[in-house]
Computed example of a mutant assay.
Amino acid sequence: MNFKTLTAALIFTIFISCASKENQTTNTDSTTVADTVASATTPETESELTPKDDEIREMGLLKEVEDSGYPIATLRIEFPERKFEEYFTVNLEEVPGADINKMRDGVGKYVSFLYKSEPTNALLDVQVNGKSITNEAPIEIKPETKRVVGILKGADEETPGDLPGTVTITTKENTTLSFDFFVTKEMVAVNGKRVVGYYEERTQNIITALKLLPK
């Protein structure tokens, strides 16, 4: 073999070796990226945070935690990218892992959660003969505030626990509205009698699962 032939063979061998190493590096990089993506899209709580039925999955910045009377807590959650915030309630006895102290420690962190939105009638005031039996000061009547006149039912006794009871007001047209409310002794005194109720139609956001995320 002459010198020119030997040189050409040596160059060809080096080219094949470099191409082989480059291919190995590319395959290794592809595997690493694939593993990383798979890991990122398989969170530990995927089964917990999979929506069921009418549940909605969200993630936001936890701004405030308020004790609304055990076992209910109210969370104020901000959605910075969409520039708005919303209030959510959570039952500490029904949502696994929900701890009010841990949630307070998590203020300023992002939280991943599932929730349901349910329409509700918020009873603001109950009056008899033009006088309130539930408020010391007059309530503010807003454009969205509604008025119902009818027979009060469900106020058989004062609410014994930390959760509100359910009372109803039935109009003469036989339309019945239900309200979650803490029954007072003044309401017990007029149970079964004609009252005037002031209320607002609202949407209640109820958290069914949540997980605090690291900063």
Rank of each mutant, 00 (worst) to 15 (best):
M59N: 06
F88P: 03
K52R: 13
K116M: 09
N2V: 06
R57E: 09
M1I: 08
D105M: 09
S20M: 13
N2C: 14
P160Y: 02
A209K: 05
G154E: 04
N135M: 07
V188T: 00
E158Q: 08
I72W: 10
T175C: 08
T89L: 10
T208D: 11
F181A: 09
S132M: 11
K211I: 12
F179N: 07
L163I: 03
D53L: 00
L123R: 00
Y110C: 10
D180A: 13
D156H: 15
T89I: 07
I206Q: 08
I133S: 05
T134N: 06
G161L: 11
T41D: 06
E140T: 04
L75I: 02
L10T: 06
G197I: 00
S68V: 14
I100A: 07
T50E: 08
R194W: 02
K116D: 14
P80V: 06
D162V: 04
S17A: 14
A73V: 13
D105R: 13
G108M: 04
T171L: 15
L212K: 03
Y115A: 13
Q24D: 06
N135Y: 02
T184V: 12
D105V: 05
R147D: 13
L92E: 06
G150T: 04
V128S: 12
I133D: 02
V195K: 00
Y70C: 13
N2H: 06
T184R: 13
V188K: 04
K102D: 10
D29Q: 10
E66I: 15
E173S: 06
D53C: 01
P160E: 12
A98S: 08
T32S: 14
R82P: 03
D156S: 12
I77V: 04
E64H: 01
D29E: 09
N91S: 07
R202Y: 02
I141S: 10
S47I: 12
I100Y: 04
M1Q: 05
S39Y: 04
I151S: 02
N129H: 07
K131M: 14
E58M: 11
Y198R: 01
E200V: 09
V195P: 01
P164N: 06
A19P: 00
L61R: 01
E64W: 03
C18A: 15
K153P: 02
